[in-house]
Design a protein around this nucleic acid. Structure first.
Lengths: 233, 233
DNA sequence: CGCCTGATTGATAAGTATCAAGGTCGGTGG
DNA sequence: CCACCGACCTTGATACTTATCAATCAGGCG
């Protein structure tokens, strides 16, 4: 999986860093001056495809924000299965809880060459304690994540694979638009199933006409999102 | 299910309210004066067994804290299955995210006659904005909950029922001690399975000798927690 | 004493994972 | 330029786990 585990720091212009911070809802209430201050404390790092930004159990020294690229946040079960919780893109935090944990409880891995901003935990902590709106923003993000995971649990316990997969597709389409560039396996990990059954369900949906996954790899096209949504009831 | 949906306000002494607030880790860094101030804004309500403190979708007007009794936090799937996320006891918040959501995304129901403190959302919001340590405390609680739910998801996707049930038992035993006063069905809802399979797994564990559920209803006794923990690997 | 809730056991069916065996496409090296 | 290789996709057969359905039992409470 990890062919090339290189990582290197790059110097991003302050303007670039400010731009990324502004895309993160956590900082939406900050003044431009505050954002610039925060940007000055952020460092950019490039992680090549497959590299870990951090792994489960690593000490939580940094608060991370995606500047560019895709980063998958996941956890591995005792029996070796991966479960993907989210795919972070520009402006997303990798772990909103970074401030209140000792060790990361998930792993973060670059899905393509990705560049990430990071801020030291201590620096961020003092910044947050001076800006209550940021603390509120973090709480909001965490609430949304928690709600999402509660829903996922309910799905896992009560619904069948097809419905779960449809939910995943809707969610992903909401974030990435109708064309998803995902491996069947990545989709399976996201939905809590296996590659094979993900494929079987996809063919079924294709037959129904709600999606048109061109045989091409890494491509699923949702032709009719509304109908897909409805099919989830 | 709900035989008697009575609810009534009671006047708790300030000392009683302070006592409860002090048991909640969110407020551990507050001065006694601050706690008293907060206590003065809290009102006590009794919810008889089976009553809802709130239901999924209700507007989130209040921040709740359990004063006495047991409250189950759960969600119902489209196909009608209940999933219990947590059982809140004295000092636990019902929904830590109450500040950052519009509507509750779970339901809270009294498992026995329970009394609960509640603080208006607005009042609590202004209090929190003056006490950053409380905001941090809320984040910590939310992080822990999120971590717990991530683990649950990994279990649901990757592990078999027996292991999940053992995990649930360990978790519950950590909170309530070795004697659990739970219905088989309640345990099943907590573990994401059905009553029948919960029973089958329990008998199996009983045969192994790690637990001794007296045939009596609502009782599961964990005779050897260490061995139970080990059996989960 | 009889009812009602919760516990239990068994038989059966359904849903998915697992295992196995190709198939396709794009890129790479000879 | 071609052949091969590896990553990804696909399909089929099978097995296993667990839900479901059905029936019975046990004990407390009115």
């Amino acid at each position: 999986m990890v062919k090339d585990s290189r990582t290197y720091n790059i110097s991003l212009s302050d303007a670039a860093k400010v731009g990324t911070l502004q895309e993160c809802p956590i900082f939406k209430d900050l003044s431009p001056a505050d954002i610039r201050e925060l940007a000055s404390q952020a460092a950019g790092t490039v992680f090549t495809k497959g590299t870990f930004i951090f792994e489960e159990g690593d000490p939580a020294y940094f608060f991370y924000l995606v500047h560019d690229g895709l980063v998958q946040i996941y956890k591995t079960s005792g029996s070796g299965k991966n479960v993907t919780f989210t795919i972070a893109t520009r402006g997303d935090t990798l772990v909103a809880s970074a401030l209140s944990i000792e060790k990361y409880f998930v792993s973060a891995q670059a899905m393509n060459d990705a560049t990430v901003l990071r801020i030291g935990r201590k620096e961020f902590l003092t910044f947050v304690s001076r800006h209550i709106s940021v603390a509120m923003g973090i709480m909001t993000i965490m609430s949304q994540r928690l709600e999402r995971e509660y829903e996922r649990i309910v799905d896992l316990v009560g619904e069948q694979v097809e419905l779960r997969l449809v939910h995943s597709l809707c969610l992903l389409a909401g974030k990435f638009g109708p064309t998803l560039s995902l491996t069947r396996q990545e989709l399976a990990n996201f939905s809590g199933t296996t590659t094979e059954t993900a494929i079987r369900v996809l063919s079924k949906l294709k037959k129904k006409g709600v999606i048109s996954c061109s045989t091409t790899r890494r491509e699923i096209i949702i032709s009719d999102l509304d109908r897909l949504r409805n099919s989830s009831r």
